[in-house]
C-alpha cells in the first residue's frame, strides 16, 4: 500500500491506497475507512469507498482543507490491514434462465460451455463486494471466471428488471431496481438488494462475500420473485 492524498474539490480529498483492483486490497480499505471515520467524526460529510480509493468529503465550516489533509495523514500513518473485520457472507438465490437472462446463451456460446456449465461457473465462486455505485445498493462484485468475462452490451438496455443478475468484464452484480443497464444478463434474484426499511438499507456492503445459489422457478416464485420476461416489461 502506498498512500497518496489528492485534491478533488473544495471540500473533498481522494485517498489513494492502491493502483490496481485486487481482492487483497480489501482488508486495507476496510481498516483505512474505519480509521478515517473515527478521526473525522462529525466533521465527515461523506466517505465514498471504491476499488482502490476512499473519497473524503469534510465540513468546510469545521475544518480547512489543510487540516483535513493532516487529519487523513495522521489517521492512516500506521494503518494495518483489518483481516478479522472481513464483511458478512451472503447466499443470494438466482433463477438462471434464458427468459430472464437473455445473455445466458451468448456467454455459453462465447466460452464454448453448456448453459449448465456457465451456471456452475458463476455460482461456485465466492465473490467479494468491491464497491457500491451506479444505483442505490448496486454492488460491484468479482472476480468471475475468466471464461465468463464479456464486454458490456454495445447498446445498453433502456430497462433492466429489478433483481437481474449480470456480468460485465470480470465483474458481476444484481440490479436492485428497474433501471437502464448494459450488463450481460444471466438470471434473476428474488432478494431485495436495497430496502429503505432495513437497517443499513443495502443488503450488500463493501467487503462482504457473496455466493449465488441456483434455484428453480418454483423456489424463485416462492421467494417473491417476478418472472415476467424482460421483453414483456414495459
Amino acid at each position: 500500500m502506498k498512500l497518496r492524498v489528492e485534491v478533488v474539490a473544495v471540500d473533498s480529498l481522494m485517498v489513494r491506497l492502491f493502483d490496481v483492483i485486487d481482492e487483497a486490497n480489501m482488508p486495507w480499505m476496510l481498516a483505512a475507512r474505519q480509521r478515517l471515520q473515527a478521526a473525522f467524526g462529525g466533521r465527515l460529510v461523506d466517505l465514498v469507498p471504491s476499488y482502490t480509493t476512499l473519497m473524503v468529503q469534510f465540513d468546510l465550516l469545521q475544518m480547512s482543507p489543510t487540516e483535513a489533509r493532516s487529519c487523513i495523514e495522521q489517521a492512516l500513518a500506521d494503518v494495518q490491514p483489518d483481516n478479522g473485520g472481513a464483511g458478512r457472507r451472503h447466499e443470494i438465490p438466482v433463477w438462471y434462465d434464458p427468459s430472464v437472462g437473455p445473455e445466458l446463451a451468448l456467454l455459453a456460446q462465447r466460452s464454448g460451455k453448456s448453459l449448465a456449465e456457465v451456471i456452475r461457473l458463476h455460482s461456485e465462486r465466492e465473490y467479494q463486494v468491491f464497491a457500491l455505485g451506479f444505483a442505490p445498493g448496486f454492488a460491484f462484485m468479482g472476480l468471475v471466471d475468466e471464461c465468463l468475462a464479456a464486454p458490456r452490451l454495445a447498446t445498453p438496455r433502456k430497462r433492466v428488471a429489478a433483481g437481474s443478475v449480470g456480468i460485465a468484464e470480470r465483474q458481476t452484480a444484481a440490479y436492485p431496481a428497474v433501471s437502464p443497464g448494459g450488463w450481460n444478463l444471466i438470471g434473476r434474484t428474488p432478494s431485495a438488494l436495497f430496502d429503505r426499511d432495513r437497517d443499513g438499507y443495502s443488503l450488500l456492503q463493501p467487503g462482504d462475500r457473496v455466493r449465488f445459489v441456483p434455484v428453480d422457478h418454483g423456489t424463485f416464485m416462492r421467494l417473491g420473485g417476478d418472472d415476467t420476461p424482460l421483453e414483456a416489461q414495459v
Partner: peptide, 10 residues
C-alpha cells in the same frame, strides 16, 4: 482510470 468517488461539480 479505475472507478472512484465523484465530487459535486466534477
Amino acid at each position: 482510470m479505475i472507478s472512484e468517488g465523484i465530487p459535486l461539480g466534477a
